[in-house]
């Protein structure tokens, strides 16, 4: 009888551990919008034959051609019309790929990129970086964009100077 008692108590202890917790819970309702907004200003003459121009957000700097794609590629803003002089955007209304959602966190590389292909290309070599969200107007010093949960980060402005293009990441 003692053995039965010990065995039942042992297993009951294991079971109690389980009984204390309900496991996975529903996520609380979130209010507010997570995102960023700003303005892109273009200086100089647009190159010929540009088919698409996007503000593109990366989690980390591009060190290999593979970094140009998900999961490092984190968000894409709608294409900016050709020869536009300035473009105001926000990540809620201008989400180019609805499949993408923006997570809170630090993003180390935000750029304006252009392509001359008719269809959206996923090859790194088809893209040219024309502007970088940077520190102190220095195109070689990318600025980290911090996205906060359920907050809209504003003032994320980028200047594109066609006469002074930024350094290109690896192809």
């Amino acid at each position: 009888m003692k053995k039965i008692f010990v065995a039942i108590v042992t297993l009951a202890l294991f079971s109690l551990i389980a009984g204390c917790d309900k496991g996975i819970e529903p996520e609380p309702i979130k209010t507010g919008v997570t995102g960023f907004s700003g303005k892109v200003t273009f200086i100089g003459n647009w190159p010929a034959d540009i088919k698409r121009t996007h503000v593109v957000l990366f989690k980390n700097a591009i060190t290999t051609s593979a970094d140009f794609f998900p999961p490092n590629l984190s968000f894409v803003i709608d294409s900016i019309p050709y020869r536009t002089t300035s473009f105001t955007y926000n990540s809620v209304d201008n989400n180019f790929i609805p499949l993408f959602t923006l997570a809170p966190g630090d993003y180390k590389y935000l750029v304006v990129a252009q392509s001359k292909t008719d269809v959206l290309s996923l090859n790194r070599k088809d893209w040219f970086i024309v502007g970088i969200y940077n520190v102190g107007n220095d195109q070689s010093k990318p600025k980290t964009l911090t996205i906060l949960d359920r907050e809209m980060t504003t003032g994320v402005d980028i200047i594109v100077d066609f006469n002074n293009p930024p350094p290109q990441p690896p192809m």
Binding site: P70, L73, L99, F100, T101
Partner: peptide, 11 residues
């Protein structure tokens, strides 16, 4: 499969 659960895909 974090690629399926986290942004940007977040399937």
């Amino acid at each position: 499969d974090f690629n399926l659960t986290q942004p940007p895909i977040a399937l």
